[in-house]
Design a protein around this nucleic acid. Structure first.
Lengths: 200, 200
DNA sequence: ACCTGAACACCGTTCAAGT
DNA sequence: ACCTGAACACCGTTCAAGT
């Protein structure tokens, strides 16, 4: 007798998410088709419905998974190792941000598109918030150590992350591929920091 | 005898572009359907083909038109009026950038999506380049007047525009609507400038 | 519980044909 | 030149039915 395995996959949900991510990276979000994914996975075209309410729900779940991994990458980068200065940690955070974005450019674009949708699901917004919480936390620590000017840490962080996001937007898939983005990130951070940090 | 007017519109091409822009602002790029536009304009669903090679070509033309208007807005903002300082002019440029983006958020998003496509048409890239040329030009003038540090003006401009683009991305349709973006732009420029301009 | 097949209402694109 | 209608190959979504 055969094992009572779920008809096709051990986990169709996971398989769909993985296939969708490959499709996104290969041809952008709009190239994701439930029917095509189903075909590739050898499953009827209505099977995804068991795991996702619809195409948008699948994309939202993929975006959420992206933010979770993004959060983990930023967390690893900013975690204090030994006694690093605020500037060093901020630079590491920035480089982790850019590295993730360049490694998964299409997923990264999807993450922001999904987050900006008017009816984005709460888990997606929560995952996004967690990822972006690393900025204000670092700024607050920097302030406590006297390395950063006073002011709302969320506001300070917002400007820095906005600059990073802009660099990524302009660079990803863009005509600026030839520019060394690590260097550019470092330069930007230098400039921003010299405006943020107290003059000695 | 009736005048030999083109069957339906004086200019179906223009009417399609306008209808498409309304659709984009109303429901995002992916809500644009050639068949729906045709229906709304009282024309057969194959008529658009006479004016645009396909859906993507219509969107590209719309994006190009957006960049043309964007370029004009930036040009007006940066044009020297009296003897404004570099800092004043850069602030004006930044505010024009943000104002345009917030006035046409969905069109603005489309403009960048279209520009980033691998097979973006040359007119689109040219229109985009013209718009973004205002930055380096202003920085070069600032350098000539001794108001900006040395360095590649294109590179300097890129960082500033990246920061603006990031603010717009984070703000548009986002959870940061409550933040006064004009103030935020001014703050960002202050910080960046204090890093860019020579210390007195 | 999980998956299927047929059906419905849409798409974009192509092409021979009309005026 | 400019527009049309039928046809083709896709979609996402719904729903009654199977195991």
């Amino acid at each position: 007798m055969t094992a009572p395995r779920p008809y096709h996959h051990g986990n169709l949900r996971t398989a769909l998410l993985q296939a969708a991510e490959r499709a996104v990276e290969a041809g952008g979000t709009e190239s994701v088709s439930l029917r095509e994914l189903s075909r590739a996975l050898g499953v009827s075209h209505t099977s995804p419905r068991r795991h996702f309410a619809g195409r948008q729900a699948l994309l939202d779940a993929l975006a959420t998974s992206g933010f979770d991994r993004f959060e983990a990458a930023l967390g690893r980068a900013v975690r204090p190792q030994g006694r690093a200065s605020f500037k060093t940690r901020l630079t590491r955070l920035a480089q982790a941000y850019i590295t993730f974005a360049l490694k998964h450019p299409a997923l990264f674009a999807l993450m922001f598109e999904a987050k900006h949708r008017a009816d984005a699901p709460p888990e997606l917004l929560a995952a996004s918030s967690q990822a972006f919480a690393h900025g204000p936390a670092l700024f607050a620590e920097g302030q406590a150590a006297g390395e950063v000017v006073a002011g709302d840490p969320g506001r300070l962080s917002l400007v820095v992350f906005a600059a990073l996001q802009g660099l990524v937007t302009i660079s990803t898939n863009g005509r600026f591929k030839e520019i060394d983005l690590d260097t550019l990130a470092k330069e930007s951070i230098e400039w921003i920091i010299s405006g943020i940090c107290p003059r000695k």
